[in-house]
Simulated scan of single mutants.
Amino acid sequence: MHRKTLKRLALSIAVVAAIIVAAVGVAAVGNDYRFTQTAVQIPMGVGHLEGVLTTPRQGEAKGLVVVVHGDAAVEATQDGLYFPWFEGAADAGWATLSWSKPGVGGSSGNWLDQSMDDRAAEVSAAIDWALGEQQVPTDRIILWGASQAGWVVPKVVAERDDIDGVVAVGTAINWLSQGRYNLLAELDRRGATTAERDQAIAESDRVRELLARGASYDEYLAVTTEQSPMSADRWAFVGRNAKADATDDLRAAATREIPVLLMVGLHDRNVDVGETEKVYRDVFGTALTVKSFDSAHSMARPIVEDNAVVGTTVGLLWPRALLAPDVIDGYRDFLREIG
């Protein structure tokens, strides 16, 4: 090989190596979080839940934030996506308890076997466990719940007298209304034709009718045209919870007169946050603080949800930047105001 070619090749290799080293360095800094994490195991009936407890690196924690997941098979840290939330709480002087859903990450059971009442009982049992553990700071307890947790958190608050505040992130009010909102929003995003919209809505109506009469999984398969239809477990889960509506539980929770922070994304295609905000304001009155962000449903910047390459790159190198500006600041400020 020519000597000049060898030099150019060597230079190219050096440049690539420098870029890789720089990227690794950035990723190391970007993934260094200001909290201490400890694995915990929470007894739950005949099984257990695998979880994590995060605490501030310095000083005693003022209390405990209990994480209540949204939908899907979520492990304790949501594969690291919860780390900015854990850090925000730690910066405010709070510990955080989170666990993998039943059947996920070593936890016993199957989360798809649960109703929203089951989920609330699970959260309450985890709080009772925490209260009995000396290493878990429980002087004050905050519930942090996202999305589907909107049907879980109010039940827990209404049934207990030791919850000191709530952070509701992109929560919905009515299960079926939320599903219809999401369907229409996704059709709009895809630029669906009138015929495509009519077909999707008609199929959705047929599925809703099946859910209303408790139809079998086979009946659902005969109706759906989805390329990836729900599994049998998922169909049973949806059937078990499709009538969920948070309104009555929210009213019961409001009698506790505790501060509530509602965090909503202005680009949320999953939940009608306008409806959620209206109901929450009507129910909680002056106890409610609403903070809106230039974000998607998950509080992430819209671009990282809509562009897989951008999302993956940001997630690897600087995962804090996945969330929209001021999201963690708003969360941290709320915790500081409480204690």
Rank of each mutant, 00 (worst) to 15 (best):
A185R: 12
L64Y: 06
A61H: 04
A76P: 02
R190P: 03
V279M: 02
Y82V: 02
M116W: 00
G30I: 01
V327M: 04
K291A: 12
T171G: 14
K291N: 14
V67W: 07
H2Q: 10
G25H: 11
E50W: 01
D71V: 05
A252I: 03
A222T: 11
Y181M: 10
A130C: 10
S115E: 07
M116A: 12
A287K: 13
M1D: 15
T55C: 07
V15A: 10
V304G: 02
V156A: 07
D164T: 11
S147Y: 09
I201Y: 05
D139V: 15
Q227M: 06
D333N: 08
S108Y: 00
E75M: 01
G150R: 03
V26E: 09
D139H: 02
V207C: 11
G51S: 01
H2R: 13
A39H: 11
R140D: 05
L210D: 11
A212D: 07
R119N: 14
G59Y: 03
A252M: 04
N182Q: 11
E75Y: 08
W85I: 12
S98H: 04
S204H: 10
A308V: 12
T247L: 02
P102N: 02
K278Y: 05
K7D: 07
P302S: 04
S204V: 00
Y331F: 15
E87W: 13
T286N: 07
R301W: 06
T38A: 10
F35P: 14
D218C: 02
V167N: 05
T54D: 12
V40C: 01
S124C: 03
S107I: 05
G191T: 10
S231I: 00
A236H: 08
A27Q: 09
D282N: 09
A172W: 04
R206C: 06
E159Y: 04
A296T: 07
A300D: 06
V153A: 05
G63H: 03
P137N: 09
L335I: 09
W144Y: 08
